[in-house]
Design a protein around this nucleic acid. Sequence first.
RNA 1: GGGCGGAUAGCCAAGUGGUCAACGGCGACAGACUGUAAAUCUGUUCCCUUACGGGUUCGGGGGUUCGAGUCCCUCUCCGCCCA
Length: 374
Amino acid sequence: MKFKILSGDGNARTGLLTTNRGKIKTPAFMPIATSGAIKGGVSSEDMRGLKSEIILANTYHLHLRPGEKIIKKGGGISSFMGWDGPVLTDSGGFQVFSLSSIRKITEEGVHFQSHLDGSKIFLGPEESMKIQHELGADIIMAFDECPPSTAGKDKIALAVQRTSAWAKKSIQTHTALCKKGKESPALFGIVQGGAHLDLREESLAEIVKLPFDGFALGGLAVGESEKEMYETIRAIAPKMPEEKPRYLMGVGTPENILEAVENGIDMFDCVLPTRNGRHGKAFSSIGDFNIFAEKYATDFSPLDPNCECPVCKKYSRAYLRHLHKSGEMLGMRLLTIHNLHFYLDLMRKMREAIEKGEFQKLKKRVMKGRTRKG
RNA sequence: GGGCGGAUAGCCAAGUGGUCAACGGCGACAGACUGUAAAUCUGUUCCCUUACGGGUUCGGGGGUUCGAGUCCCUCUCCGCCCA
């Protein structure tokens, strides 16, 4: 993997990430295909149509079903799902935090139960690296521990320590799995520490020591206030290695992303465009809104008057509302496509603005438009 | 003409003397969702009130009772059966 910075505007920058399966212009948004599918019935062709350059899949989910062996036989996750473009796999570390059936966390990893059948699962840095190598993604993530914001500082400090130890093990296992001459995935390390800047600094120092190909900020948007999240991003993002891609995991709203790009983040992923698409919330340049609302019953205008997506070119709010109220899966599909287009288009606009040195101008314009109400 | 059974909030439907403004489901109206256990979850849904609380309800009318959606009489309508 190669990463080249192309232009800058303040701390914001554009770049080109070259992976085994293709190039990614940064700042980039990575739509989430947890189980090897963008939820909402969005296909790989749809994703190409939306000009997404990379998607994200999850180690834990794919490990449980169908299993990495099958995916490897299928040519790796990218080919298996007919995408053929770059894929980043998350390590499964987030599930440590999000699944309620954790039984025990040890130095070696996490014992927990499958959400599918309750069977006992063990996942640690070594297991995660092995699985991710079999899945065959272009970028893989170190196995980390992501505590919720409600955890006490001592718990978060412990998570920082564990994340550092697991980072070392992730690197070791990954290095051993990389065969000479064979195209290997890039491995990113993850910084933890919650909203505690001292812990963040400590975590950053530890992780940056290791030869990762990129660095991620994890453990944000996990319950802390937006103010705390912004303070953390502002303090830490600019200190992450400049020549390596910086990835803010799981974040966030369009406003969050604007803020993070301003502070030098290059990569993002978030479930909001897809999940909200399924739940009826539309992102829009003139303010987000709930398509279920009664006032859209007779609104025959497009979701977003400034949108060039295939959904806005053809379908009305009234029709989308009808589909959602009727539980038609087309409603979810169309709204998800629109939302993904909104995110990907916002990234495009940010890259153009950074190149022109007009990032602040764009940020102000976008924020202003969105404070209106759909 | 006779015999049963039924009528509960927008719809379906619990409820058989007090803890019933009335279970539950649907529908409707809102809200939430940030490295996806999520096509999910939460709230409201007789009237007035931000709330506390108050008012009027269970086909109509009349009765029994301290007290009735629940028991009795009667009327109306619906369903089934016998003529």
